[in-house]
Design a protein around this nucleic acid. Structure first.
Lengths: 132, 132
DNA sequence: TTGTTATATTCGTCTTTTTGAATGTATTGC
DNA sequence: GCAATACATTCAAAAAGACGAATATAACAA
């Protein structure tokens, strides 16, 4: 198969699409949304094994779609370029979903099953408040 | 792996993306663009075997991304929803390509190697013109 | 009807990707 | 130091997809 110029450009174009072309990747990206999410958060929200989630995160990080930030024992992932959400929204529209449906999913909600600093911020008891 | 609601929606969202997540599919869609293209046109432009192209066209048709129209011996394919080009453009932008680069590729140019009615319209000779 | 052209389809193999299992590493608390 | 927690990495099996070869169909022409 000869490599036509158009195929070379197409290879470049298809890179981001190919990277996120799976329900799992889409779900992870939606959960991260415009905010941050740690692995335990995704674990609690998706119900998958930790290692499995890390594999996807690793791939997305290597593809420069995600970036990570360590905070103590937790590592928070966020989108390197939020416009990847536009791509997801565009695909959702094509499959008949309303942009609103997507936006409600994009919002990073607190998950009560997750115990990371973001989902379960340390509560200050009344007694501690007094001394503060 | 349990199926969380978000995964079900993600499956729906990922359908169009997954369908076009390959350089070959992208190239074909760009060549069709907002116009029409027959298989022989794609064959001439891409330099691939006919059967191989037909396989991709068949898949894209079954996925409701393409529609076809027969005209004599030729079958012309066109996008069922031109907004799939927006998805392609969005991915191109993410990979650092300018929207202009994409638009120049989208234009359906005539290919001198293709002999379909669109690329090589029947020329009326001077003599035939006289009698017309 | 027979041949030719344009395209479709089926089948099998090969390559890639996905996913699970097991294990490794970094950080915190004791 | 040691144990526990949060996450990463490697490896291999399984599933999916890509691609080539061969063949089928549909329309036109003679």
């Amino acid at each position: 198969m000869k490599k036509q110029p158009i195929l070379q450009v197409s290879e470049q174009i298809s890179a981001p699409i190919s990277m996120i072309a799976s329900p799992q990747r889409i779900a992870i990206l939606l959960l991260i949304g415009k905010g941050e999410a740690c692995v335990c958060h995704l674990e609690a929200s998706l119900g998958w094994r930790q290692a499995y989630i890390s594999q996807h995160l690793m791939a997305l990080r290597k593809a420069d779609i995600l970036q990570d930030r360590r905070e103590g024992r937790y590592i928070f992932y966020s989108l390197k370029d939020a416009s990847i959400l536009d791509l997801i929204t565009a695909s959702a529209t094509l499959s008949g979903l309303s942009p609103e449906t997507v936006s409600t999913l994009i919002n990073t909600q607190v998950n009560p099953s997750c115990e990371c600093p973001q989902c379960a911020p340390v509560l200050i008891s009344v007694e501690n408040l007094k001394t503060a």
